[in-house]
Nucleic acid binder design. Structure first.
Lengths: 334, 334
DNA sequence: ACCCTGGTTGCAACCGGTTGCATTTTTCCC
DNA sequence: GGGAAAAATGCAACCGGTTGCAACCAGGGT
């Protein structure tokens, strides 16, 4: 069976308190006692139980990392960054996959049962009600990739979707395209709406430019491909350049174009969103709007840490700027 | 502050034991008491603390999910499947990213501190010593994607790499290629060695066929690309068909071929390994060896569950069969 | 009415730690 | 060397639950 405080205390010939104190820094223990305890602990292979101590300290150093997106390649990077950032500050991620049919136990209650210190939601597609369920639990919460608001009810960090949309429009306008289009994700996704809004308002600032929009049913390759196939088959002429609301949408769209014998970028230009690792692969070589993932995630974890110290902090919404990565799916600039 | 057993007991006018019993099934409580307790619990929003109870029950229903691979797209699928499978049986994944510089706390000790019920290692590239460190902790352990042995020291489940290598060789031989090659991952990775062994032995069974092998420095796009560039630049003629030890290696290799003006599959055939989601994207359309991921992962979780009930079970090694997915990077048969 | 049985309940000890407080030991200064 | 302050230590209660045990209760059989 596992070795406990008591075992170590017995072997070291000291009280249980002494052992406890050697393992909590800042506590008052003499060097001699500490040494005796350490020897006994090493000999026995003692590991303090986080949960036993959490009973009194009320800290588990556990963070619920919840997401509903386990399909988009960008999320592998997201999980990598999050877990590293969480581990780097001495916490541990308890991963929650919201993907399965809700039949299972309520994730909020679950996280309460596990006494997580805080929760990080990583999703741009979660319904607002779901997020507020988490918020009502009283557990410190940060929503990464959530939507910006002036008076947020939960701390939110995300890329400036609107400005990114404008950036994408600008990139297309700079190519002198007169007919440009937005190919978004699901129409109800706020990230789609914001990217579109920025895109359209920037386009409106140029004269003689016509815009159109359409939506894929999901942020996925298949949906992007299907939507572009639909556009190709439709009577209307294709636009000269498309801003796709996600890199996987772009790749899907490109596969449809390619099959129809339409060349990218000479016939149609494409600019994506996210800058997933794959976008820079030479045979994809996707021009796209880069999202400063590492920065956003680092800031999210830091913000959650602040919240742990100060539960009364008023929620903030913070925005990060994107950046166009010029690659091969738009013609080179003049 | 959180509401506890005692609060519920007080409100329901029963003892703490009664409350505890209401929430542990199989315990003896009258219907009337149960109802009173439930009402009080609902009114107060009571959530039993897993950790408090784990002190006496010695079960946290936490499973350490450890991996060192947060770059290969196939692992997004792996994490999706694992988390779902773990959640489906009422457990929770504590995710450990071995990626960061080992400077941090020892992951084994960490998992002991958190009293995880079991550990799942998902990696085909972890050094054997690391795995045995986990094994020595005494925590029930299953190594998914580990190497098959007749007398394993830890439970291992994986695809039959050798047979998959043979399958790949067979696919190339069936195209009447006379010069075929293996482009593996890191030479020291056991998965690479096994895939190569199967590949070479199958190739040896055919007459008049020459083989060659080379290794990429990692299971990554960049490494696959670099290695293929090296092969192209080398004096020797390219082989007619390549078996790449991983899909991302294949895509990297294909990018190099494409840039050199070498057509796939007419000039050179490619067969990959894994069948990641992206492999079926029409503009990748990679012929590859499919690994039955869902089956392997489901079996891994089940096996771990068995181990939890029976800690003395002797370790087993179990193999699953792969399957060639015919797509566009090898010429059609016959 | 009495005894027995089987289900329900509360008490109290325990799981593995932490911590306030009182006591003992050490250190420091004169 | 003596005395006071500071540091170290142990005791015991507590964190939020579980569980063996004994007491209790209702009902059935005779």
């Amino acid at each position: 069976m596992a070795v406990t405080l008591k075992d170590v205390a017995a072997r070291a010939g000291v009280s249980r308190s002494a052992v406890s104190r050697t393992f909590t820094d800042g506590a008052s223990v003499s060097a001699r006692t500490r040494r005796k305890v350490m020897e006994a602990a090493d000999a026995l292979g003692y590991r303090p139980s986080v949960f036993a101590s959490s009973l009194t300290t009320r800290r588990t150093r556990l963070i619920g990392l919840v997401s509903d997106n386990f399909r988009n390649p960008i999320f592998l990077e997201v999980f990598d960054q999050f877990t590293r950032a969480i581990q780097a500050v001495g916490y541990r991620p308890l991963l929650v996959n919201l993907g399965d049919t809700e039949g299972a136990t309520n994730p909020v209650e679950m996280l309460q049962s596990y006494s997580v210190d805080g929760v990080l939601i990583a999703s741009s597609t979660l319904p607002a009600e779901t997020v507020s369920e988490f918020a009502h639990s009283g557990i410190p919460l940060v929503h990464t990739f959530g939507r910006y608001t002036n008076s947020p009810t939960v701390d939110t960090l995300a890329v400036n979707n609107e400005r990114c949309g404008a950036l994408a429009a600008r990139a297309l306008l700079d190519r002198d395209y007169k007919r440009i289009a937005f190919l978004g994700g699901p129409e109800e996704a706020t990230s789609t709406q914001d990217r579109m809004a920025g895109f359209l308002s920037e386009a409106a600032s140029a004269s003689g430019v016509s815009t159109s929009v359409s939506f894929a049913s999901a942020y996925s390759f298949a949906a992007g491909r299907a939507e572009m196939q639909r556009l190709i088959a439709a009577d209307d002429a294709l636009a000269e350049g498309y801003f796709c609301g996600d890199d996987v949408l772009s790749v899907g769209a490109m596969s449809a174009l390619q099959e129809a014998g339409i060349q990218v970028p000479s016939d149609v230009g494409i600019i994506g969103f996210n800058d997933m690792a794959m976008a820079s692969w030479q045979n994809i070589n996707l021009t796209t709007v880069h999202q400063p993932l590492e920065e956003i995630i680092g800031a999210s974890v830091n913000r959650l840490l602040e919240l742990l110290d100060n539960k009364e902090a008023t929620p903030q919404s913070r925005l990060f700027e994107g950046q166009v990565m010029d690659r091969g799916t738009l013609p080179p600039l003049g």
